[in-house]
Lab assay of single mutants.
Amino acid sequence: MDVFMKGLSKAKEGVVAAAEKTKQGVAEAAGKTKEGVLYVGSKTKEGVVHGVATVAEKTKEQVTNVGGAVVTGVTAVAQKTVEGAGSIAAATGFVKKDQLGKNEEGAPQEGILEDMPVDPDNEAYEMPSEEGYQDYEPEA
Rank of each mutant, 00 (worst) to 15 (best):
D2V: 02
G41C: 08
E137C: 09
E130T: 11
G73S: 01
K23S: 10
K102C: 00
A11G: 12
E13G: 05
E83K: 04
T59A: 01
F4E: 00
L100H: 13
E83Q: 11
P117L: 06
E123C: 01
V16Q: 07
T59R: 04
K80Y: 15
H50W: 02
A91Q: 05
V37Y: 06
D2K: 08
D98R: 09
M116L: 06
S129Q: 09
A91V: 14
V77K: 01
D119M: 13
N122V: 06
T64V: 04
N122F: 11
Y125K: 05
E110S: 10
T64M: 04
N103R: 08
K58D: 15
E83M: 07
E57H: 03
N103L: 07
G73L: 14
T92M: 09
E28A: 09
K96Q: 02
S87C: 12
P108Q: 01
K21H: 15
E83G: 12
A29M: 11
K96P: 05
T72L: 03
E61L: 10
G106C: 11
A76C: 07
S9M: 15
T54F: 14
Q79L: 13
N65Y: 14
G36W: 12
K58A: 14
T81M: 12
G93L: 15
G132D: 04
A140R: 07
E46W: 04
N65S: 08
V40I: 05
G101D: 06
E139S: 13
E139W: 10
E137A: 12
E20K: 08
A85G: 04
S87F: 13
A19G: 07
Y133P: 04
E123P: 00
K43Q: 08
V118L: 14
G31Q: 07
V55L: 11
L8P: 00
Q79C: 06
I88Y: 01
G47P: 04
A30R: 05
E104G: 13
V49A: 15
A19K: 05
D135S: 06
K32W: 10
A11H: 00
G47R: 10
T54L: 05
K45A: 03
E123H: 14
V74P: 10
E123T: 04
F94D: 00
G73Y: 05
E61I: 03
K23Q: 14
E61V: 07
S9I: 12
V37K: 00
K21I: 13
A124P: 02
E139Y: 10
V66W: 09
A17D: 02
E83S: 02
P120E: 06
V49W: 11
M1P: 00
T54N: 01
A19C: 03
A29Y: 04
E61R: 12
A78T: 11
L8C: 11
V70I: 11
T54A: 10
E137N: 12
E123F: 11
N103Y: 13
V70C: 01
A69R: 14
P138R: 05
V118T: 14
A89R: 14
A29P: 00
G51F: 10
E61M: 04
F94N: 14
G93R: 02
E139V: 11
K45R: 02
N103D: 14
Q109Y: 13
Q79S: 04
A78M: 08
Y136K: 09
Q134R: 04
I112K: 07
T81D: 01
G25W: 12
T44F: 12
E105M: 13
E104K: 13
K58C: 15
A91H: 10
E28K: 15
A27V: 07
K23C: 01
I88S: 02
A89L: 09
S42F: 08
K34P: 00
E104S: 14
V40H: 06
V52I: 03
E105P: 03
E35F: 07
V74K: 03
V49G: 04
M5W: 14
K23Y: 11
T92H: 10
Q99E: 13
P108Y: 02
E104L: 14
K43W: 11
M5S: 10
Q99M: 03
G86R: 11
K58P: 01
A53E: 08
I88K: 02
V95R: 03
L8D: 06
E110C: 08
V3W: 03
Y136R: 09
D115V: 13
G67H: 09
V15P: 00
V74F: 07
T72E: 09
S42V: 06
K58W: 13
N103F: 05
T81C: 08
T92F: 08
E13I: 02
K32N: 14
K60E: 03
T81R: 02
H50E: 08
G73E: 15
Y39R: 11
L113I: 04
V74A: 14
T59D: 01
V55N: 05
D135V: 07
M1A: 00
G51P: 08
E35D: 08
E61S: 08
G67L: 06
E35S: 14
A69Y: 06
Q24N: 07
Q62W: 06
V26R: 00
E110I: 06
A56H: 09
E114T: 15
G106L: 05
L113S: 05
Q109T: 03
E130W: 11
T44K: 00
V3C: 06
L38P: 01
V71W: 14
T75P: 01
E57G: 12
V74I: 03
A30D: 00
V70H: 01
G86L: 08
T59C: 07
G106A: 05
T81E: 01
K45M: 11
V66S: 01
G36Q: 04
L8I: 13
H50F: 05
A29G: 13
H50Q: 14
D121K: 11
L8A: 07
D119R: 15
K21F: 10
G101V: 02
L8G: 00
K102Y: 15
L38W: 03
A89G: 03
S87A: 12
A19H: 11
G36T: 07
Q109L: 12
G86F: 08
M1S: 15
V48L: 06
D135E: 10
V16K: 15
G101W: 13
Y136M: 04
A17T: 03
T92D: 02
P108A: 11
V15F: 12
E35R: 13
Q24F: 09
A11K: 02
G25K: 07
A53H: 06
A56N: 04
V74L: 11
Y136H: 01
N122E: 11
A27D: 09
A27W: 12
V70L: 11
S9L: 05
E83V: 07
S87M: 12
G84T: 11
T64W: 07
I112D: 09
G41S: 03
E13R: 13
A76F: 03
V63P: 00
G84I: 12
A56E: 02
E131D: 05
A124L: 14
A17M: 03
S129G: 05
A78R: 13
Y133K: 01
T72K: 05
T22L: 03
L100T: 09
E46I: 00
T72M: 07
A69M: 14
A27T: 13
T54W: 12
E20D: 10
Y133W: 12
G73T: 05
A56Y: 13
G67D: 02
E105F: 09
A90I: 09
H50M: 08
G68Y: 15
L8W: 11
D2N: 11
F94W: 13
Y133H: 06
E83Y: 13
V77A: 08
F94Q: 00
K32I: 10
Y125N: 10
M116F: 09
V118A: 15
